[in-house]
């Protein structure tokens, strides 16, 4: 990254709220069985920002971030990614997904491809990069997440923490404008949580825009710019991490924190 680019990114980050990457307004969603899972959620994500979404299970937080790359359709409201509205007929869907990276709870690596192939697949087939260029960038990313030496192994040969780091590298390879993390550490053994959080922490430090659904309080305190609590398909509280964890505004937040802290 050249110096001017770094500076440009920094100025945008500092002037918080100047440019929104994700704009969502009154998003409502019903499941096929009629369950009202999102009841008018509005949340804007600004460039360079790290937003942590917390909430009890079943509160709709995963479903909410999955609407950002159209993995979940929604019925009412509006979502704009980088100025492009997610149309309900899903016409511009691939263009949007290219700009939004996603890391899943279950990693979802492609087991029939090597680590390197996992990372280069989308750049080669979607971005149409040459194989050599894609591999070079992929190796740099694998280096960044600390698993360069595993490049030629298959996902099944790696530990959970390593797999999740490959998944992060795979998403980064598309050079997304925003990264979504859907409980990235929930399926990991305790001793592997740290290595994944370290990678995410570095990512945040480098100025990546991130939306994380997670229960990691330490991570939220240290890295997040904003913490959002969701419950029963609604936003309960939106606050800075200090305020959220030390003296939350809402009674519901206090109750939630008393259960997890």
């Amino acid at each position: 990254m050249t110096q001017s680019e770094t500076e440009a990114q920094e100025t945008l980050t500092n002037a918080q709220g100047v440019e929104a990457v994700i704009v969502s307004q009154d998003v409502e969603k019903w499941y096929d069985n009629g369950f009202h899972v999102l009841k008018g959620v509005s949340l804007n994500i600004y460039k360079g920002e790290v937003v942590v979404i917390m909430g009890p299970s079943g509160s709709g937080k995963s479903t909410f971030i999955r609407t950002f790359n159209a993995l979940e359709p929604y019925q009412k409201g509006k979502i704009e990614i980088d100025g492009i509205e997610i149309a309900h007929d899903l016409k511009n869907i691939e263009a949007i997904r290219r700009e939004v990276g996603m890391v899943f709870q279950q990693f979802n690596l492609f087991p029939h491809l090597t680590v390197l192939q996992n990372v280069t697949l989308a750049p080669i087939w979607v971005r149409r990069w040459k194989k050599s260029k894609a591999e070079e960038i992929a190796m740099r990313l694998l280096d960044r997440v600390g698993i360069r030496e595993q490049a030629y192994k298959y996902p099944g040969q790696l530990s959970g923490g390593q797999q999740q780091r490959v998944a992060i590298a795979r998403s980064l390879a598309m050079q997304p404008k925003v990264m979504l993390f859907d409980e990235p550490t929930s399926a990991l053994d305790p001793e592997m949580v740290r290595e994944v959080l370290d990678v995410m922490r570095n990512l945040a430090k480098d100025g990546m825009t991130m939306v994380c659904v997670t229960h990691e309080v330490g991570f939220a305190r240290e890295v997040a710019d904003r913490v959002v609590l969701m419950d029963e398909g609604m936003l309960v509280e939106e606050n800075t991490p200090e305020a959220f964890f030390n003296n939350p505004k809402e009674e519901r937040s206090q109750k939630f924190l008393s259960q997890i802290l």
């Binding site: 979802n108 795979r170 598309m174």
Partner: peptide, 13 residues
């Protein structure tokens, strides 16, 4: 698993 399709789609395939 559905996750395979979702992962591929989320990469823009």
């Amino acid at each position: 698993p559905r996750g395979q399709t979702e992962a591929a789609q989320s990469l823009g395939l």
